[in-house]
Design a protein around this nucleic acid. Structure first.
Length: 243
RNA sequence: ACCCAGC
């Protein structure tokens, strides 16, 4: 069993998914129970190369063997949500729940992301309320996804409401949250305001390449080449290398 | 040990 585990993991890490699956099948043929850790990594390897169907098959087998856990489901769910496969994602969600696996905050975050991408902010917020009703607290991830969704759907005002609500709830915005806000401002024609966020170190934001990319792109789209170049200079001055 | 967000 130990030998098999090491082999599967090695194949997955080296992108030899087919080989990994071969070994996995051998184990099954020999009636050796693959362990959860390696089933999970096999599934993720499949999803990485976008063979969702294969990943799902392994998931189903893991369920049959009674070894699928929350992480196994979340891995597949995440892939579906990122790729906007609404029907399949909701399907999987129902299956998971009916099999007695309780969704975690991570599961909910995936669903919320799905709705945001689907331009259905109402459903996204409903899902968030559902989550709170089951006793789970929104995480920094949850808020970041919602904020990003609001901006991408043109709800700038709402994005800030969510942002404020996040701070009220005692959560500290992460650098991803702040970069999300900055990017949202730039995309909605408020690059000047976005840039002013860099000056508030009390926010705790250390601008990175991505931060500058958003702002420079924003200025360029607004036709403000002076500010774009100025921002670029500031970027190099601060020791951030452009990509 | 393995699952979620930003250019």
């Amino acid at each position: 069993i130990f030998t098999f585990s090491v082999l599967i993991d090695g194949c997955c890490k080296n992108k030899r998914v087919a080989k990994a699956h071969e070994i996995y099948s051998q184990m099954k043929a020999m009636k050796i129970q693959p362990n959860l850790f390696h089933v999970n990594s096999l599934i993720r390897a499949y999803l990485e190369e976008s063979s969702f169907e294969d990943g799902l098959k392994v998931l189903e087998e893991a369920v049959d063997m009674g070894i699928a856990n929350l992480f196994t489901y979340n891995s597949v769910l995440s892939w579906l949500c990122k790729n906007g496969r609404v029907t399949e994602a909701l399907d999987l969600w129902d299956k998971m729940v009916s099999r007695g696996v309780a969704p975690s905050v991570v599961s909910y975050n995936n669903l919320i992301l799905l709705y945001c991408k689907d331009k259905n902010m109402e459903a996204a917020f409903d899902t968030c309320s559902d989550m709170i009703r089951t006793g789970l607290n929104p995480s920094v991830h949850t808020y970041s996804v919602l904020i990003d969704g609001c901006f991408k759907n043109g709800e700038t005002k709402l994005a800030f409401d969510v942002f404020n609500q996040m701070k009220l709830s005692g959560l500290v915005p992460s650098d991803v949250t702040l970069n999300t806000v900055i990017n949202g401002l730039c995309k909605s024609g408020n690059s000047m305001e976005a840039k002013s966020w860099l000056e508030g170190p009390e926010l705790g934001l250390v601008p990175v390449c991505l931060t500058y990319n958003s702002i420079i792109d924003g200025f360029v789209k607004e036709g403000n080449m002076d500010m774009a170049t100025a921002t670029f200079n500031e970027m190099t001055k601060n020791g951030v290398s452009p990509n």
